[in-house]
Design a protein around this nucleic acid. Sequence first.
DNA 1: TTACCTGCAAAGTCTTTGCACTCTT
DNA 2: AAGAGTGCAAAGACTTTGCAGGTAA
Lengths: 140, 140
Amino acid sequence: MIRRKTIQCALVLDAVNELKSHPTADEVYDFIRKKHPAVSRTTVYRNLARLCETGDIRKVEVPGSADRFDHLPKGHYHVKCTVCGRVADVDMDYITDMENGIKNSRGYEITGYEMIFKGVCPDCGYRRCGRTEPKKKPTA
Amino acid sequence: MIRRKTIQCALVLDAVNELKSHPTADEVYDFIRKKHPAVSRTTVYRNLARLCETGDIRKVEVPGSADRFDHLPKGHYHVKCTVCGRVADVDMDYITDMENGIKNSRGYEITGYEMIFKGVCPDCGYRRCGRTEPKKKPTA
DNA sequence: TTACCTGCAAAGTCTTTGCACTCTT
DNA sequence: AAGAGTGCAAAGACTTTGCAGGTAA
């Protein structure tokens, strides 16, 4: 299973690094299509998966909506806007020993955890009363 | 928006309470179909959503696989087996002030968080060398 | 009677897979 | 050349929606 260097793979990696906004696979696809209309959605999905395996990018599994991809290698947390579905980074020390609090894991061998904060982003904030409609409908 | 008492709704609630195993919508559907083959999948989905709204059950959003539904009302955590996708409860004090650790939330108004542990369940454990195939293929 | 609820079918969203072709190596 | 990677179309898993008819209150 030797990995080959392809333009498509480089495009996907560049897109995730440039977008910096936790893009979904489709957002990466749209971004690439602007300059390279021939690249297929399938290829974007496949390269995102490969880049996750190699550790070049990170998958952020968002309950209730499409997976997002993150250019930051180190562990950190995210907030998801419950209104528009947008995801942002959160500044908080990453808890590495979370499983130490577990008293009974029902025989499971714990290997890690996923955590995502829920919230309302500045654009959707209910304090902004004169606001217009959110960018997109809630995804979860 | 008055809620009516229907047999279908009662069946869904009973199923989640009886199964006690964080069933997916489809598992609830299958369970009900054994005794009531006329109930539709759509209705199961709709009643699960309604029961979540009323707080009778809880939705456990599992990254990478179908949503699961929980009969326990109080906050607690789950482990997901990374091999077979099964979900179990974990005994651990629920952290209610998780967001206090946040230094910068990028303007988001934090309303809560979701956390799920990852692990390997006893059935899939790699220590059991003479084991047979896992029940189902990995879901994430 | 009212309008919520149901069941069916269809659509929708996100992602994966089969297959033949095209490149990298 | 090999065979990993690509693109297309189709399928797949999970969930929602539109609509006509049913039913609780």
